[in-house]
Design a protein around this nucleic acid. Structure first.
Lengths: 198, 198
DNA sequence: GGGATTATGTATTGATTGGTTCAAAACGTG
DNA sequence: CACGTTTTGAACCAATCAATACATAATCCC
């Protein structure tokens, strides 16, 4: 009945996500979003209500793809619990070395958003909190499995170990954004695993 | 020979620092800086060349006070190496629970700046890199002392352990900004120490 | 106290921000 | 082919941005 849309909404969302990922929310102008997506301003404001709304959808898109991929690794029962956590770290390190601009790592959009927006944007903070809660639940389950299969030796509370692993990932991402190279990140991951396996 | 300044430059710098700390660089307007410092715009632009310059001086002020205090704890030879690292973690946790706004932790200005600006602001990135290099050097020395006094059992490379500790602090700060409470942070610190003392 | 010097407050700069409007172009359907 | 619907691009909006200009007020030294 009407003119069909000339662009792929999913592709535009992905382009916007990468822009926010690279520059942050405040430093990204609507002009930047137009150039990244290849759309006109009115197309963007027609499809998404506002810059704020577009950001929320981009963040949801990021959380969806990232956390889903990470949890898949954690729930791969072919390997021991410790090996799954090792694989998770490898995945994070690969991501950090892969996604860079201007010789520097982009970090992680959830971490970046926690730092830049969580205090001012309740909706974004809620999305982030739900995501970490979900991640912590799975991590705790993996720890308990590792207790049974013998790959996790630490007798610390499983919840504490889960938070520790989560914090370690955040620390690796910050280190990466601060200039740490791949071997530095790998050594951090190894020491982190010591706390679990010894 | 002339009219003396009505305000304390150091005090203004401190107020500006707290504003940048709370809101980030981009989200802080010159109006915010006027209100925080109690100065007029022209006084600010007279004393500091620009918003950018004011931020750099605020960041330097932050790094100076924070890192100096932290390194003092690390170099207190009255305690064992492990106890000094323990004290460092306690200091970080106290800071996170102390500096908050709107029920949320402000995190750490160096971490926040690493995330928001390091990729775009070479000068800020340089300041941050020098700061972490300085911190890593002292941490490595503490690790080696701990090897001698017996409080550090890990046989991992001292540089790797230093980076691990630094990353752990960053991870704790991110966790705190993401909503982790004091007991959560304390449990993360305990597990982190396991990797060094076991 | 007079003159030189500086700090401060007000007003304003031009550029850019996020967001809206509107007419014309592009399609699918009858 | 023509109608009705939707996309699209360019022009436009008020607001705000960082930064400046300028006049006034305040101070010190002589």
């Amino acid at each position: 009945m009407a003119r069909p849309r000339m662009f792929d909404e999913e592709r535009a969302l992905d382009a916007a996500m990468h822009t926010f990922w690279e520059k942050g929310y405040e430093a990204t102008s609507t002009q930047d979003l137009c150039e990244a997506t290849g759309l006109g301003r009115s197309s963007i404001y027609n499809t998404f209500k506002s810059k704020h709304d577009l950001f929320h959808r981009a963040l949801a898109h990021y959380i969806d793809t990232m956390t889903t991929a990470q949890l898949a690794v954690l729930e791969d029962t072919r390997h021991s619990a410790a090996d799954r956590i090792r694989a998770l770290f490898a995945m994070v390190i690969d991501g950090e070395t892969e996604h860079r601009a201007g010789g520097r790592s982009l970090g992680c959009l959830t971490v970046n958003t926690t730092v830049e927006l969580a205090a001012r944007d309740g909706q974004a903070a809620g999305m982030l909190e739900r995501d970490t809660a979900r991640r912590l639940t799975v991590l705790r389950a993996v720890i308990e499995e590792g207790r049974r299969d013998g790959s996790i030796a630490s007798r610390r509370d499983a919840g504490a170990l889960a938070r520790f692993i989560n914090a370690a990932i955040g620390g690796m991402r910050i280190s990466s954004q601060g200039g740490a190279d791949r071997t530095a990140l790998e050594s951090i991951a190894e020491v982190t695993l010591d706390a679990l396996t010894h």
